[in-house]
């Protein structure tokens, strides 16, 4: 994993967001996401698990080891920032509910509340926003369920109160404001792949050698570097190759982008 990363400021992290349920502008989520009611919050966990049910957020967080993880977030739009997350490993929650044998994928769903989400009444994507991981990706120690940034509770624009963080994949895989987690055998529906399968694949691993059809992924703009800040070269798996490359040794990443 990349070390010595300097986190972006909280100001930057909370004012530059892609969260289309609150509008497609980068500042829209900061303006409108406070309308989302995040307490009480519960997550339905179902599918191939031993203990399915609707779990209150408190019961999900209880007993978990909340640690700080400073990860680089690489957006599919070719920019990146560094975020000091607070959270726990997704594997801890999956262990708690008991994944049954035969489950191969984890599907996630974001809250869909047009009354509270000003952008969700527009057909930008096929709402609710959905994402998914292969089970081994979900169980990887890097994969986090985040509850905070800089030691404070997550703000709406960052996916309050509970979101996924998968640092070796493009940012859109790290689904926000999770209300449902489903363990299943088949590959889940994922919103961006559904919107444009030529541009967004299921895996969406950060990969400088596979361009987005409309732009290069070889480099990224560094958010916070200012007007004359330069780009940096994008790292394979966003720099997390040591921890994750082994999961893809049998996969043609040019095809399974």
């Amino acid at each position: 994993a990349p070390t010595g990363l300097t986190p972006n400021t909280l100001e930057e992290i909370t004012n530059y967001n892609n969260y289309y349920e609150f509008g497609t502008g980068k500042e829209d989520p900061a303006e409108y996401a406070h309308n989302l009611t995040t307490a009480p919050w519960s997550v339905e966990i179902n599918g191939m698990v031993d203990k399915p049910g609707t779990y209150a957020l408190e019961d999900i967080v209880k007993g978990k080891d909340i640690e700080e993880r400073i990860y680089r977030l690489r957006c599919v739009e070719a920019w990146s920032m560094v975020i000091p997350w607070n959270g726990f490993q997704l594997s801890a929650l999956l262990d708690q509910v008991g994944v049954q044998s035969g489950a191969k994928y984890v599907a996630f769903e974001t809250a869909y509340r047009p009354d509270e989400m000003i952008g969700a009444s527009r057909p930008v994507l096929d709402w609710p926003y959905r994402e998914g991981l292969r089970l081994d990706e979900a169980m990887n120690p890097l994969t986090l369920l985040a509850t905070g940034i800089y030691g404070k509770d997550l703000l709406g624009q960052n996916g309050a109160p509970l979101r996924l963080v998968v640092p070796w994949k493009y940012g859109f895989k790290s689904i926000k404001s999770i209300v449902r987690i489903t363990l299943q055998e088949e590959q889940p529906f994922t919103s961006w792949k559904d919107a444009n399968h030529r541009e967004y694949g299921f895996y969406s691993n950060v990969n400088p050698t596979v361009d987005h059809p409309r732009w290069s992924q070889a480099t990224e703009r560094v958010i916070g570097a200012g007007l004359f800040g330069s780009r940096r070269e994008t790292d394979m798996f966003n720099g997390y190759g040591d921890e994750v490359a082994g999961m893809y040794s049998d996969l043609d990443l040019q095809k399974n982008f």
Partner: peptide, 15 residues
């Protein structure tokens, strides 16, 4: 505004 940091988080894209 860009030079003096008043264009938000991503001044280049904004300009």
């Amino acid at each position: 505004a860009g030079v003096t940091g008043r264009l938000g988080v991503d001044p280049v894209k904004d300009m």
